[in-house]
Design a protein around this nucleic acid. Structure first.
Length: 345
DNA sequence: CCCTATGATTCGAA
DNA sequence: TTCGAATCATAGGG
């Protein structure tokens, strides 16, 4: 952009305040004899060299005079053409660059993380989905989860306001430059094509700024994510209540400790953990129980007794929703002393 | 420190 | 896909 500005500037000076030329043309005596013309050109050049000595008002007046001259459009076109052929052609061919792969990568990531996607709901849903996909986070750590979401939406908000700001600045700047160029095109050779080119240069510039924003947003998300991931990697035991609920189900279905999808869902809800965590828990429990029944004897007895007690008190309590359906039948794991659904005598 | 408990992950089989 | 089994990695208790 710099050289272009310089270019415009130099042309601007040359044309805008060209007293000699203006006067010369207004005389209507231009080009009557070769000698005189040469002399005129010499004058013109001389005055161009000394243009900076002129006051602003003087230059303005001459500019106006020049602008109204009947030869102006023709002169303008010629100058435009010359300019196009000489300077601008150097820059030709570098347009239409292919979409930056890195930019696409950034865009994709922002979209995937729910930063760049549709508003609020979709965003956090995407975040939750991403988190879940990365390995089934426990809703048990709902504080961490919401923390993550809050931070993400914070990033998202900053990103969007910044983006909007850039957009606005870009538009403002573009219209400003366009107005300026249009204004100046009355006095110096600026073709519409050139304006267009200028606009595209501005947009490219702002795009690179936007890319920086995207880059830093991505970094922020990565940092947040890694921190969240680390937090998740640190195993947290389920809380006591959840363990009790799971154990209760396990021991009361000891002969067939395979909760159905619905049962898993219900357990997950009750324990505030995910279904995959429920599955993990039952997988672990089954294998560990089987491996060492003796070790779990006491626990089994305890839960069996508790279930029995709760079963007897159901009539009174009326709200014992635990251990849904499918009680014991033969063929499961070897049972400890108590049959889970057998009442204490 | 060590040791055990425990949630998560991986992998092969059904 | 789900399960069992082995294994990993951390929590948590001495």
């Amino acid at each position: 952009m710099n050289d272009q500005t310089r270019l415009m500037h130099s042309h601007g000076v040359g044309m805008a305040g060209h007293p000699g030329l203006a006067q010369h043309m207004q005389d209507g005596t231009a080009g009557t004899d070769g000698e005189g013309r040469k002399q005129d050109i010499g004058d013109i050049l001389q005055q161009i060299m000394t243009i900076t000595d002129q006051s602003l008002d003087e230059a303005q007046a001459r500019k106006h005079a020049l602008n109204c001259h009947r030869m102006k459009p023709a002169l303008f076109n010629v100058l435009c053409e010359i300019k196009e052929k000489t300077v601008l052609s150097i820059r030709g061919g570098q347009e239409e660059e292919p979409p930056d792969p890195q930019l696409m990568r950034l865009d994709n990531m922002l979209l995937a993380e729910g930063v760049a996607g549709p508003e609020k709901g979709g965003g956090s849903a995407a975040a939750a989905a991403a988190a879940a996909a990365a390995g089934g986070v426990g809703a048990d750590n709902s504080t961490e989860h919401s923390d993550y979401r809050a931070k993400l939406s914070q990033i998202r908000q900053i990103y969007h306001t910044e983006l909007e700001k850039y957009e606005q600045a870009c538009n403002e700047f573009t219209t400003h430059v366009m107005n300026l160029l249009r204004e100046q095109s009355r006095t110096r050779p600026i073709s519409p094509k050139e304006i267009e080119r200028m606009v595209s240069i501005i947009h490219r510039k702002f795009n690179s700024i936007q890319m920086q924003l995207k880059q830093s947003t991505c970094e922020a998300v990565m940092i947040l994510r890694s921190r969240f991931l680390d937090a998740r990697r640190k195993r947290r035991n389920f809380n006591k209540q959840a363990t009790e609920i799971l154990n209760e189900y396990f021991y009361s279905h000891l002969s067939n400790p395979y909760p159905s999808e619905e049962a898993k869902e219900e357990l997950a809800k009750k324990c505030s953990i995910t279904m995959s965590q429920v599955s993990n828990w039952f997988g672990n429990k089954r294998i560990r129980y089987k491996k060492n029944i003796g070790k779990f004897q006491e626990e089994a007895n305890m839960y069996a007794a508790r279930t029995a007690v709760s079963a007897t008190s159901v009539s009174a309590q009326g709200s014992q929703a635990n251990s849904p359906s499918t009680p014991n039948s033969a063929g499961g794991y070897p049972s400890p002393c108590y049959q889970p659904d057998r009442r204490i005598q």
